[in-house]
Amino acid sequence: MNWEQYIFEGKPFEGIYIFDVHGHVGAHKPFQLGGYDADSVAKTCRRMNVDGVVVSSLPALASDWKWGNEEVAASVDAYPGLIWGYASPNPFYEDCDITPYLDLPGFVGVKIHGDMQGSTPVNDPRYFPTYEVANERGLPVLFHAWLSAEVRAAADVARRYPNTKIILGHSGMTARDTALEVARTCDNIFIDTAISSTYDNAIEVLVDKVGADRVVYGSDICFFDCIHTMGKIALARISDTDKEKIFGLNARGLFSL
């Protein structure tokens, strides 16, 4: 595939399955986002030939968990087959049960952002009921994983619940080496590409260290755009086969699509 031609002609990739494992809907209090409703996310995905995106609600992570999960449900309902849902728990509410959302069609995993929820470590026992459901169903759990401590807490969850599929958002970002280390020791850990600012040749490092089978395309849309991450993968010095795995084939297996 002539990736360069598509990019420099500004045309979306064709003939390739693209599935984004790291998306959001909803507003975010600290700063203005680009279009953040389901319509905006779906429009960009369609424009860029993205076959599917799994979204969590930013308000579900940082505000009212129930209101936010309803926002995800409405988004999934509005764009079936394109927008898929992550359900997000809140550790501060004993009555928080996200199972009813996971029972809905189109909900395919769990998203947890401990940093937004009072800097709660993701291996805090208050999250365990959610992991037990995910483990029983073999669901992916996407973690915000930025710092070394966050990566190690996520790895602890991966070891406790081996039937879950743990996705380390942002490749561990400032703790990439830690993320790569735990991915090498836990077969159920995957690494996503959602990084706003990184250097060329960074995708190559991920593939070299853990193999293309363990790297999945995540954009963090609508937190930021998806197009720069697409370019980083498409122009990386890795094989076409590896690019296709990262863009969607790995996610197809992860989410049993």
């Binding site: 990019i7 420099f8 002609e9 500004g10 979306p12 424009r47 860029m48 600012s197 990184t198 250097y199 060329d200 960074a202 755009d225 197009i227 720069h228 991450t229 697409m230 370019g231 980083k232 498409a234 122009l235 990386a236």
Partner: peptide, 17 residues
């Protein structure tokens, strides 16, 4: 460059609407 990504930068413009 070299600490930023040229691939990301050109994609942001090429794919912009």
């Amino acid at each position: 460059l070299p600490t930023g990504s040229a691939a990301a930068a050109v994609s942001l413009i090429c794919f912009a609407e």
